Simulated assay, not measured.
Amino acid sequence: MHTSPEALMAIIGMALATIAIKAGGLLLADRLPRYGFAAAWLRHIPGAVLAALVAPALVTGSMAEVFAAAATGLVFVLSRNLFASMATGVLTVYLMRIWLG
């Protein structure tokens, strides 16, 4: 298999960008606020990003996505375990897509 120089340069560039982003996050972590409005705002970013990724699938998806969202929400309310609820959602959408065809 032959890889073009352009593809190799793109791969190296993306790897360097990924390393720079991760290193920047590690270097800036000590400077982030721990208290106050900005700290509270930063704690809510992961949930907002997840909601932004899931919402379009719920609006444009099939019943499999709706059932998976309901199952995910139910498991989270009952267990308060984020990993268990996310695993339930992924498994539910997978099984519902198989079952519904």
Score class of each variant (00 low, 15 high):
residue 83 F to C: 07
residue 90 V to R: 04
residue 25 G to V: 06
residue 91 L to M: 14
residue 34 R to I: 03
residue 70 A to M: 08
residue 26 L to D: 10
residue 14 M to N: 08
residue 79 S to N: 05
residue 11 I to C: 15
residue 26 L to I: 12
residue 92 T to L: 06
residue 47 G to Y: 01
residue 29 A to C: 07
residue 2 H to L: 12
residue 49 V to S: 07
residue 6 E to Q: 13
residue 27 L to Q: 09
residue 25 G to L: 06
residue 20 A to M: 07
residue 53 L to E: 07
residue 35 Y to V: 09
residue 12 I to M: 14
residue 26 L to M: 13
residue 30 D to H: 10
residue 97 R to Q: 10
residue 29 A to M: 06
residue 11 I to G: 14
residue 45 I to H: 02
residue 57 A to M: 13
residue 14 M to C: 11
residue 85 S to F: 04
residue 92 T to D: 00
residue 6 E to R: 15
residue 4 S to T: 12
residue 87 A to K: 01
residue 47 G to W: 01
residue 86 M to V: 14
residue 46 P to V: 01
residue 43 R to C: 04
residue 35 Y to A: 09
residue 79 S to P: 03
residue 7 A to Y: 11
residue 4 S to W: 04
residue 13 G to V: 10
residue 25 G to I: 06
residue 18 T to G: 15
residue 64 A to M: 04
residue 51 A to I: 12
residue 90 V to I: 14
residue 88 T to E: 00
residue 3 T to Y: 14
residue 50 L to T: 10
residue 90 V to S: 04
residue 16 L to V: 13
residue 8 L to W: 09
residue 40 A to L: 10
residue 81 N to R: 07
residue 2 H to M: 13
residue 17 A to I: 11
residue 44 H to G: 10
residue 34 R to H: 07
residue 47 G to I: 01
residue 97 R to W: 05
residue 90 V to T: 11
residue 38 A to R: 13
residue 47 G to V: 03
residue 75 V to M: 06
residue 57 A to Y: 12
residue 6 E to T: 12
residue 18 T to A: 15
residue 57 A to E: 08
residue 24 G to E: 01
residue 85 S to R: 01
residue 75 V to C: 05
residue 16 L to P: 05
residue 53 L to V: 12
residue 60 T to G: 15
residue 74 L to M: 09
residue 79 S to L: 14
